[in-house]
């Protein structure tokens, strides 16, 4: 450069990656390593001076704790149902939006909007509109004579689970829509024309043309959303705090409660380690189906 100082290419490359490496080591690697280390310690946050190494005792504790397994199965139910609904609604809405209609941009904007609404806001709105006594949803259902008794949306284990799933579907279906829409835009129109010429109806065209084209993106999105949904904390904690009883606990809420309410940071961390193991499995599946790594060999 001007001052006769030129960085070699390699130096520029390393210089550019350096901040990332520093941040990654400090803010990602270290906390994760620390989380794993804590899983082997008894750690009361009020008395860090008493922290002691306990070997596998935290893991023994969680595997012997019925609540851990309840949380695990409840998380599985909540994840599966959320994903099914998100995928079905997501594809349906994406197809609706993938039309050349005047004003479609407005609809698209409104339908994607829930994705950016803060979880705190949604949880509060949910508690307001689904309030059994003063909420507008029960009022509407009652005045339409669809129900006689008010529905206790958050007071019975099954309804509370349904309400959290509803919230999750409402907030994250747009994510599926975004991904599917992005893919739909790349489907060559000729494929449809060919199918039309062959005399295929709307349903056939969807099954024969659209769905195969979406297969890859859907698998990726499903794996992704499964990993995330399984580990969600705020959606559940802010709406039900895991209740009533412990009927909407998942592992994230379990970990949080163990860490803070029970003052067992070690047990919370051990739960985190179990979650990490499970998500690594999910990530491997993701890498396989998404085909990352294969194209590295042929740049």
């Amino acid at each position: 450069m001007r001052a006769g100082f030129t960085l070699s290419d390699r130096a520029v490359g390393l210089l550019f990656i350096a901040p990332f490496l520093a941040a990654a080591i400090f803010f990602m690697v270290y906390p994760v390593v620390e989380a794993i280390r804590m899983a082997f310690y008894s750690y009361n946050p009020l008395r860090p001076d008493l922290s002691t190494f306990v070997g596998l005792r935290n893991f023994e504790f969680i595997f012997a704790d019925p609540l851990f397994w309840d949380s695990f199965w409840q998380a599985t139910v909540w994840t599966l149902l959320s994903i099914v609904f998100q995928t079905v609604f997501g594809v349906a809405i994406a197809l609706l939006l993938h039309q050349a209609l005047p004003g479609i941009a407005l609809f698209r904007g409104l339908l994607l909007f829930p994705y950016i609404v803060p979880t705190v806001v949604i949880a509060l709105i949910w508690r307001w509109i689904f309030n059994p006594e003063i909420g507008v949803v029960n009022y509407a259902l009652q005045s339409a004579s669809l129900i006689k008794e008010p529905i206790y949306w958050l007071s019975t284990p099954s309804m509370a689970m349904a309400s959290t799933i509803l919230l999750n579907v409402w907030k994250y279906t747009p994510f599926v829509v975004i991904c599917v829409l992005a893919r739909l835009q790349t489907v060559p129109l000729e494929l449809y024309d060919a199918a039309k010429v062959d005399g295929a109806g709307v349903v056939r065209r969807f099954l024969d043309v659209t769905l195969p084209q979406l297969k890859e993106v859907l698998i990726v999105v499903i794996v992704f959303r499964t990993i995330w949904t399984f580990n969600k904390f705020e959606e559940i904690y802010l709406l039900t705090k895991g209740g009533p009883g412990t009927s909407t606990f998942n592992l994230a809420v379990y970990s949080f409660e163990q860490s803070i309410a029970n003052l067992r940071l070690g047990v919370g961390a051990a739960t985190g380690v179990v979650m990490m193991v499970m998500l690594s499995i999910g990530s491997i599946i993701y890498l396989r189906v998404s085909g990352f790594g294969q194209d590295e060999k042929s740049p």
């Binding site: 006594e133 206790y152 958050l154 007071s155 019975t156 009533p244």
Partner: peptide, 20 residues
Amino acid sequence: PKGAVEYSFLQVVDAHVTGR
């Protein structure tokens, strides 16, 4: 009230003050 299984401080007060 049916919802009592999830009531905390606030909701007990609400129930009384609203005549439920």
